[in-house]
Nucleic acid binder design. Sequence first.
DNA 1: CACGCGTGGCC
DNA 2: TGGCCAAGCGT
Length: 355
Amino acid sequence: MPKASQKKSPIAPPLSGELLAWYDRHARDLPWRVGPNARGRPDPYAVWLSEIMLQQTTVATVGPRYAEFLTRWPDVNAMAAAPQEDILGQWAGLGYYARARNLHKCAVVVANDHGGVFPDNEDGLRALPGIGDYTAAAIAAIAFDQRAIVIDGNVERVVSRLYEIETPLPAAKSEIRERLEKIWPDKRSGDFAQSLMDLGASICRPKAPSCLLCPISKHCAAQKAGTQENFPVKAAKKAKPNRIGAVFALTNTRGEMLFERRPEKGLLGGMLGLPGTEWKEELKGDLFASAPAKSKWKKTGEATHTFTHFHLTLDVYAGVAPKGFRKGASQQWIKPDEARLPTVMKKAVGIARQD
DNA sequence: CACGCGTGGCC
DNA sequence: TGGCCAAGCGT
């Protein structure tokens, strides 16, 4: 093999230019994108916020929630100055609550240790809380015009089809990165990243990809072979076990309900919820030992919810606070309609109020 | 590397 | 209707 072929080409191949040209015509109009006529670079804070929110969360879901965050906290110093519980409350319903905890941590670090300015390179960004390989590369490329290889689920799918990569994910990641190194342009790195993601979202979809509309189909090995839907190859998933628990909805005479803040780590960490038992395979022992007060508890129904790794059934009990009840340090009275809760707790509250 | 970690939409 | 999927990260 000639030496020259072992060195990566400094010039991006036709595929890259064709994809960018397609992006110029078909880029999605998204709230966190600066328009084609915008001058200068996008705001790194806005790019960071959108990227954190978009981790494992759909564009449709993020849209309105992103606008709320940006209005409430217009810059990183404002977010850093807010109490963590305000960020968690605003995040309620979005899931993966570690993202919200790390969002606040990151804002504090940027405000306190970086003078309110985000690092302008991949390594600096990668060192911040909640920013991993993908997000560091995305911010570096989109906000700072750095050549950074951006790999998300869309990119993995597009590349694995382009080259019919048979290795299952996530082991295929290194091979995908090597392929991308050879086609990633020096200029318009952020646009190229977003062109791959837009292609994956709108054309090169998981099911029934629109290869007839694809600007790079003629370069695609899977399209040539008709094997598009066989890629990417993924490792088999585990079955979700069932768990069960009980929660207690205690109300007072002011129409408030008792909530408690969950421990910082673990499932729904730092979020408000109803007091209750642990969630295990079986409900055993004295349920009411886990109740927040002595009361005439009445079961009003069951809430079911599926998390990433288990199915949950919650027995929901309603009761009224006895005279002289004193709440614990982690507990607070809140009107149920005003509580910012994770979805599973919102379901449980709805069932407690049915009677 | 494998696992824990949410939620809503889609077929 | 239950599994799959979505701009992943931390440990």
